[in-house]
Design a protein around this nucleic acid. Structure first.
Ligand SMILES: [Mn+2]
Ligand SMILES: [Mn+2]
Ligand SMILES: [Mn+2]
Ligand SMILES: [Mn+2]
Lengths: 217, 217
DNA sequence: TAATTTTATTAGGCATGCCTAATTTTAATT
DNA sequence: AATTAAAATTAGGCATGCCTAATAAAATTA
């Protein structure tokens, strides 16, 4: 079996792969896990011995099928637990991620499937991330960062790229959430801040950083 | 903060205290945790330094108020999660304990309280063990082992003392569960096996070991 | 009480998963 | 191409939580 730590490495590599990082290096992993490249190299060696990934100075790290399967299972559990925490326990979308970081490592044969059923087979988590199904299949996701939408367009928020309590509380205060309908009113010349209209509500400014983290369709 | 391992020690000492073990020794703890007395002594030293317990060759180990509080919180989470697994996810009472062993260590400020609310403030877990409330208070429990009940008496099963899948599956096959109504029909002379009648069902034999693990009122 | 058995304790080790401080490679600049 | 900067790797350590083997203390039994 694999340890909690090993699972977090696999998940980090999985997520960088999904993000399209072209070469997954000790440095990039260390940044994500907030630890040290030297520690990462130790672990890459171990996971490589276990055939969960390949590592090559030139090509970087890449999950094997076996490693990918484990990573997908953890991601599935993580996102299902987030749905549980939000829908059943009433946590906010800014609180669920940290708790799910712990819950994702709970191990039991059909726990994920039972949870999935109990929750009604949700397809997206509270941040709009797709939930792998029983077989690891992901629902389609086609979305664009708000920062690339033209003036006048009306769009719907379907994903946020930053699950930190900080950022999500910022959005809460702006009254922006998943499924918010947004129309771009102005793009400030001096810094690319956006002035957006929230359907039926108010107009708010979004920093360029924020608008890169909000995905819409 | 305390580690998962530390939490398990505190819980073990708590549970021996509740069982009325008069002197909680390195050996008794090691047996419960299935590890080595030498390891236990290391940990007793650490927990003692942290003021979570006192340890004395003569008096054995004893939780401080602080240590007791932590132990109660873990027991609370353990039992609440067991209720969740049984009632919401449809696990059997023989399966929930092992999963709850993992879930009890999930840490978040008001997780237990939210779970408690979600479950409708249950007072007993699937094995009949009392669930501490928000303030650590336990509901009353007055019950006797089935082995001490006289012939002819009709009693209700309210607790089982062994949460292992093995034993609980044995009870399942005998169709005995919490709230089963049982009448003692015979006590075998040669080994104290019981012949009991299950209300409206059938008569079954219970081994003396089993009858000591079934508590009734 | 003396011998025996059980329990507690100490000493020394090991695996895991981190770290820092070199050192070596590789990449980027000048 | 030479210099400089960044990234990868190696070496050596450390805390945690275990272990076994050896020793000391306590409890039992004879
Ligand atoms: Mn998350
Ligand atoms: Mn994690
Ligand atoms: Mn249990
Ligand atoms: Mn536990």
């Amino acid at each position: 079996m694999h340890s909690l730590s090993e699972e977090n490495y696999l998940k980090a590599i999985y997520s960088q792969t999904k993000e399209g990082v072209s070469k997954i290096t000790p440095t990039s992993i260390a940044e994500e896990l907030r630890n040290n490249p030297a520690s990462v190299i130790d672990m890459l060696k171990k996971l490589s011995d276990k055939k969960l990934l390949s590592y090559d100075k030139v090509k970087g790290a890449k999950l094997t099928e076996k490693g990918n399967k484990i990573a997908v299972e953890i991601v599935r559990k993580h996102r299902l637990w987030e749905v549980f925490l939000l829908e059943k326990l009433g946590y906010s979308w800014g609180e669920v991620h940290d708790i799910a970081e712990q819950l994702e490592h709970i191990r039991h044969e059909d726990l994920a499937d039972r949870l999935d059923k109990f929750l009604g087979y949700p397809t997206y988590d509270p941040h709009g991330d797709p939930i792998p199904d029983k077989n690891g299949k992901l629902p389609a996701t086609k979305w664009l960062p708000l920062s690339e939408i033209a003036i006048g367009k009306k769009v719907k928020v379907v994903n946020v790229d930053d699950n930190s309590p900080d950022f999500l509380k910022y959005l809460d205060r702006q009254e922006i959430g998943l499924n918010s309908i947004i129309t771009i009113r102005e793009i400030q010349n001096f810094d690319k801040s956006l002035l957006v209209e929230l359907k039926g509500k108010k107009e708010v400014y979004l920093s360029p950083e924020a608008s890169k983290k909000i995905f819409v369709e």
